[in-house]
Structures are given as structure tokens and as C-alpha cells.
Design a protein around this nucleic acid. Structure first.
Lengths: 198, 198
DNA sequence: GACAAAAAAGCACGATCGGTCGTAGACTTT
DNA sequence: AAAGTCTACGACCGATCGTGCTTTTTTGTC
């Protein structure tokens, strides 16, 4: 890897940390330059515009999410175990060292929902994929005979996503120590309600 | 009402609209002045600092929330009907004209969760009160014999809050037309699961 | 209509914003 | 050794940020 590529990676990693706390608008060239230890112009030379920097951050975020959440979960057996693995690995993602401000997609979703542009488009695609992955995993659980056939997997994904969102706010804003316990309880209710009735 | 008070109200209302789209940091004195039709200094004279403006916006938001969601819901009978009323009025709040960017508390929660200060403190109090209100309403539903006695009302509030969050993201970011249908389905599941088993 | 008080404007400040220069040292390639 | 490419630098641009201080305009009361 060339030196330039390494520097660019350092910049993007730092920018991702900043974005998880302050959002994409919180990334300013001057601030980032001083944190990375470069001059403004030296840093800026790695990107043709601020928007390109923001897109690089988003790409890095989706990469990291795949690596921290999705790929490890695929190691779990199809069906309910994999649903659980996605949930557990997402909890780990929320406190991952690379994003001190918590799930960067939550931050960016709120920030970009009313701001059309390439960044928003990329985020929408990433989030759509995540919801789709949740629904598809639930479908597999039906195929495996873990979940009941009548289950609406889109609603299931909606509900599970809601548990994650609620956890995010309860923990990060309210600093409620019961957040994780509540999230696990809500998850168990959701899974229990989705199972084959015995 | 004096003219100064009226102007101040106009400023805060406009600032609330801006905040629902761009957050508290999106409120800049210059921008707000041109939107309201004042000079920067003329507008600034109504507040001793930007932080005071932000606190005024937060106070206006909680007032409006009480007026649009909480008070109307109190007209519904205690128990499950009031739970439904809170949910329905919250959906109306999400598309209320005074907040074109959607529920301003979602925006501010994400923005302020890592930024200590008076604004964060005020927001935490408002959100805590909201969660408490949801839990208390569920308790009443138990007392009324609508919900089962063993129900953990804190988890109930956590789950209902999750439905609201999921709806917010699904509708605002993903622009998914099924958002409301999914939210209603998830709500019905939650209520059905909370009822006395028949 | 005079006059004090309130409201708004005018002007200026230091800082920072995203972005564009020209340039210079460090490596590669020839 | 010469030529060319990377990488980063400092200086600078116009615009905007939040916030003072002073002056003008508007408002309400006698």
C-alpha cells in the first residue's frame, strides 16, 4: 500500500469517528486536518471536494458494518440462530471502537433524511439492504421451521429495527442502564411471537 | 401582548421549523434573521446568547408536543383507548405543520446525545417524561383490566417507543409508503400481546 | 404632540468555513 | 544523474459564523 493510500485511510477512519458523534456536517476540513496531523490543504488534496470525503466515509461505514455485523452473523446456522446472531452483533457494533458516537447510520439517517444528494442516496441503499437482510433472515427462519409460516417478515424487520432504535436512544441519550435488558426482553418477545405456536 | 414578545414568538417558531430539519446547529443567526425578516443584530437582541435561543426552541417544542399529543390523548378513556390515542396523536405530531422535518425530538436526540449542556439536559427530561407517560398509561391499562397484570410496563414503553422510531426512519429516510401500515401492524401486535389472554 | 422606553438596524470584530493557488521535498523511473 | 510523480505545505480567497457596541426608528403613555 502506497503512503498516500495509507494516509487517506487514516483520514477516513478519523472522519468516521467524527461523523458518529457530530454527523457529516460535523466533519470540517480544518478540524479533521488538525486531528490527523496534516495541513488543511494537505488533507484536502486527497479528495476533490467535501462531498467526496463524505461519500468515502459512508463507504467505510458500510464496509465496517458488513465486517462487524453481517459477516460474523452468517457463520450462525440459518433460521432463528442467525436472527439472534444479527441482533447480538448489532449490539456489539453499537459500542464498536471505530464509532465512539454509536451507530453512525442512526446519526446519518436523521441528518440526511431531508437533504437530497449522493450521500443520502448511498445511505438509503445501505439502510434498505439492512432491512432487507433482516426480512430475508426471518424468511429463512420460516423455511427452517423456526418461525411460523404466516409471519409478515417485513413487519418483523420493522419491529426488530424498532428495538435497535429504541435501544440506541435509551442508552445514548437517556443513559439508562436498563437499556440492554429492555432490548433483550423486547427481542425475546418478538422472537417468541414469531415462533411456531406450540 | 407586546410587540417584542410577538416577534420573539415568531423567531422561536421559525427556529423550531429549522431545527426539525437541520437540528439545533442548523439554526444560525444570519439565516434565521433573513427568514424572519429581521437584521442579525435585531434578532439577536431578543436573546442573550445562541444557547438561550436553543433552550427557547426546546421549550417551545415540549409545549407544542404536550398540546398536540399528550393533552388530546388525555381526553380518551383510561386504559387501552388512551394507549391508542397516544399512538395516533403521535402519528399526527410526526406530520405536524410546525415541524416540517418531522419529530424534532428524534432529530435533537441524535444531535445532542454526545453533547453535554443545558440543551441536552432539557431534552433528556422531556424524553424521560415521554417514556414515563407511556409506561404510566400502560399501568392504567392494567388497572382497568385491559392489559395483563404481569406486563412489564417499562418494556412496553421501550417497545412502543421503538415502533415510533422505526416509523420515523422508514418514512422519513426510506420514504417507504408501507411505513404507516407497518407501524400500525406492529402497534397491534404489541397491544395484542399486552392484553389479558383470552 | 412631546418623551421615555422598547425594538430594530448598522457596523465591526475575530474566528472559521470550503476551497484554490504555487511550491518544495521525497521517491521512482528512466 | 535527470525527469517525473507523490505528497504535503503555507498563504490566501470570499463568505459566514456568533457576538459585541452604537445609533436610529418605532411604539406606547402622558
Amino acid at each position: 500500500m502506497s503512503k498516500g493510500t495509507a494516509t487517506r485511510e487514516r483520514i477516513v477512519d478519523t472522519a468516521l469517528q467524527v461523523a458518529s458523534v457530530d454527523g457529516l456536517e460535523g466533519i470540517t476540513i480544518g478540524r479533521l486536518a488538525s486531528e490527523v496531523g496534516l495541513s488543511k490543504s494537505g488533507l484536502f488534496a486527497h479528495f476533490r471536494s467535501k462531498e467526496e470525503l463524505q461519500l468515502a466515509v459512508l463507504a467505510a461505514a458500510t464496509d465496517k458494518f458488513t465486517q462487524v455485523v453481517v459477516r460474523p452473523a452468517l457463520a450462525a446456522p440459518r433460521g432463528e440462530p442467525r436472527v439472534r446472531a444479527l441482533f447480538e452483533h448489532w449490539l456489539g457494533w453499537e459500542r464498536h471502537e471505530s464509532i465512539p458516537g454509536g451507530c453512525v447510520f442512526m446519526q446519518l439517517s436523521v441528518e440526511l433524511d431531508d437533504h437530497p444528494g449522493a450521500a443520502r442516496d448511498a445511505l438509503v441503499e445501505a439502510q434498505t439492504r439492512w432491512l432487507d437482510a433482516l426480512a430475508r433472515t426471518a424468511e429463512m427462519a420460516i423455511e427452517e421451521g423456526h418461525f411460523r409460516p404466516g409471519l409478515d417478515t417485513r413487519v418483523f424487520a420493522f419491529q426488530l429495527f424498532g428495538v435497535l432504535c429504541s435501544y440506541y436512544h435509551t442508552k445514548r441519550l437517556l443513559r439508562d442502564e436498563r437499556a440492554e435488558a429492555h432490548a433483550r426482553a423486547a427481542f425475546e418477545h418478538l422472537v417468541g411471537w414469531s415462533r411456531i405456536p406450540t
